[in-house]
């Protein structure tokens, strides 16, 4: 075989190796989505309602989490029971907070679907507010878990 062939082979291999992720994106000028205002608004409302709807399932799960605790009567003298109580309290709070997040996020999306006057920028600002509300608390998180 000739060096030319090898060079071609290597060039092909290099080209193959550097293929970057190309998603089949909708065309920027509106080929894939956002055809008209009405369907846009409908999409926002649906996304909002579906996200808010998750709160129901979370509520049911919290109920089951609670039910699971009811049998644990007086378990003094059992270290793991005390540990479990702390565990339960922490998850009740966390899952409750996630439920709240669903409500907030879903609410913003739903409202942007109903409120024709809201601009894209307005909606983004509201979404950014939710994001900054839930930032990492590195310092506390590291210690509170008692490892």
């Amino acid at each position: 075989m000739s060096w030319d062939e090898w060079e071609q082979l290597k060039a092909d291999a290099a080209a193959r190796g550097s293929t970057s992720m190309q998603l089949n994106r909708a065309a920027p000028d509106g080929g894939g989505g956002g055809g008209d205002l009405k369907s846009d608004k409908k999409a926002w409302v649906k996304a909002g309602e579906d996200t808010k709807g998750l709160q129901d399932d979370i509520g049911k799960a919290l109920g089951k989490l609670d039910d699971g605790q009811s049998g644990l009567g007086d378990v003094s003298g059992v270290q793991s029971a005390a540990a479990q109580k702390e565990l339960y309290d922490s998850w009740k709070k966390y899952v409750g907070d996630v439920k709240g997040r669903c409500g907030e996020l879903g609410g913003v999306m739903e409202r942007s679907g109903h409120d024709l006057a809201k601009s894209d920028g307005d909606v983004k600002a509201e979404l950014d507010k939710i994001k900054s509300k839930y930032q990492d608390t590195e310092a506390v998180g590291g210690q509170a878990k008692g490892r």
Binding site: S80, A83, L87, S90, V98, D136, T137, V140, G141
Partner: peptide, 26 residues
Amino acid sequence: DAKWAPKLRALKADDDLKVSDRDWSD
């Protein structure tokens, strides 16, 4: 009991809603 109690405590939820790399490492 002594073996399991710390494992249960270690499973406590994070105190913020940002799931960080540290949280996954935990």
